[in-house]
Simulated assay, not measured.
Amino acid sequence: MPELPEVETVRRTLNELVGGKRIERVTVTLPRIIQRPAEPEAFAAALAGHTIQTVERRGKFLRILLDGLVLVSHLRMEGRYGVYRQDEPVELHTHVRFRFDDGTELRYKDVRQFGTMHLFAPGEDLANAPLNKLGLEPLDDAFTLQAFKREVAHRTTKIKPLLLNQAHIVGLGNIYVDEALFTAGIHPERAADTLKAPDWARLYDAIRATLGRAVDAGGSSIKSYVNGQGEMGMFQHQLLIYGREDGACTRCGGTIVKTVVGGRGTHTCPACQPLPGNRLKAKVKPRAK
């Protein structure tokens, strides 16, 4: 958390809230948030006087485009942005403040302190870490069924960890992988190279549809996620399987189980998502002598 739909929602709200605003001063109170440049003082000095033009997204990263600079920000687990009046009290765990010349400021708050910020010259951000090794964007026009299969269909990895790997497909996290696999009727432990053409078509459609509906709903507020205006997402009310362990499957009425796949909690309906070769074999009684 947050995943692609949540970051996309933050991007849209930040565009509305800070687009066109000129930075007067930047204050950093937790230096390790700033990954590039190495010194937070250099980060703050470089941004002063620049104007935010627009906010874009690459995978789970925000790309804040300014006149002559690009700020790459990752929210990690609980990072959040909000716009405040400069005279409003600063909340606990607020680590970076971007003061604008109109009396407002953008504040970055992060209770877990895992978020990161990188500053680049235009064009350098996409050619350097952390963006240079990211995979396909699942909501882009370039993400076709053919491109999807070309990237992952030949791999022997289990399908869930493969979809979570940002080097192949970006933006997908635990929630939406569980939802897409359930929608497609594919067990998360299936090896990618065992999926057939109809499986790939269903999974492709499920990924696009699930993410699209989640973006429309403003993302999922499972824990602490809110957008740049402090509003919760609403897609958690539409989740079909994630977080519903021991509940009834919405499709067949069977019991949803929670296991661990690739180190991640995983929700599955054994009836709707069968794992080939894993069906229980009937016990054969020994013959009487």
Rank of each mutant, 00 (worst) to 15 (best):
K196G: 05
E124T: 10
Q166S: 12
G68V: 02
V260S: 11
A129I: 14
A42F: 00
R202Q: 06
D216Q: 15
G185H: 06
L69T: 01
R58G: 02
P5Y: 08
Q35T: 02
G265Y: 07
V215T: 03
G68H: 03
K281F: 13
G233I: 08
R150F: 04
E245L: 01
F100L: 00
P270V: 06
K160S: 09
A197C: 03
D199M: 05
I34P: 08
P37I: 05
A38Q: 14
A282Q: 15
L134K: 13
P2W: 03
G230M: 12
F98V: 01
V72G: 11
L195P: 01
L17E: 15
A192E: 00
R80E: 12
C249Q: 02
E137M: 07
M77E: 09
H118A: 09
E24I: 04
L163I: 13
A121K: 14
K196C: 02
T268G: 06
H168K: 05
E189I: 06
E88G: 07
L106P: 00
V55D: 03
A44Y: 14
V83H: 07
A282F: 14
G254S: 13
L172Q: 08
H50E: 07
N174V: 10
Y108K: 07
D246G: 01
P276F: 05
T255C: 05
A191K: 07
T259L: 14
D193C: 11
R251C: 00
Y176E: 08
L30D: 00
P31I: 01
I64A: 04
R244V: 08
L164E: 08
E24M: 05
A38K: 15
N278I: 01
V226G: 10
V261M: 06
L66K: 00
A142W: 09
K21I: 06
P270W: 09
V96C: 03
T157A: 12
T13S: 12
V72K: 07
E105P: 01
H50K: 15
V18I: 15
K149M: 14
F98M: 01
D87K: 09
I64D: 09
A142E: 15
R76F: 10
G228W: 03
A153P: 08
L4H: 06
K283N: 11
